[in-house]
């Protein structure tokens, strides 16, 4: 259940995580709590979303990129 589909678009769980980031949750722990997803899925999902350019990470905090905002 990767967070980015083969066509490059966020999957259902990817959109869920982007929604949590959009709602102001910026740490892995907060995103996990808000999305109801386990820590390992949030960490791997955010990694995929960052590689695909939907989120940016700085010092363990995540924010939406323009691409991420457009995907919501």
């Amino acid at each position: 259940m990767p967070c980015v589909s083969p066509d490059g678009k966020p999957s259902e769980s990817g959109v869920k995580m982007l929604g949590s980031v959009s709602a102001g949750k910026t740490s892995v722990e907060d995103i996990a709590a808000a999305s109801g997803m386990p820590l390992f899925r949030v960490r791997s999902g955010l990694r995929e979303l960052a590689e695909a350019g939907y989120v940016a990470e700085q010092d363990g905090r995540y924010s939406l990129t323009d691409l991420g905002r457009a995907a919501l």
Partner: peptide
């Protein structure tokens, strides 16, 4: 994995 690419360190804290 069937849940995408995972590292063992993704599980840290659990």
């Amino acid at each position: 994995t069937t849940f995408g690419t995972l590292k063992l360190s993704d599980f840290k804290g659990s």
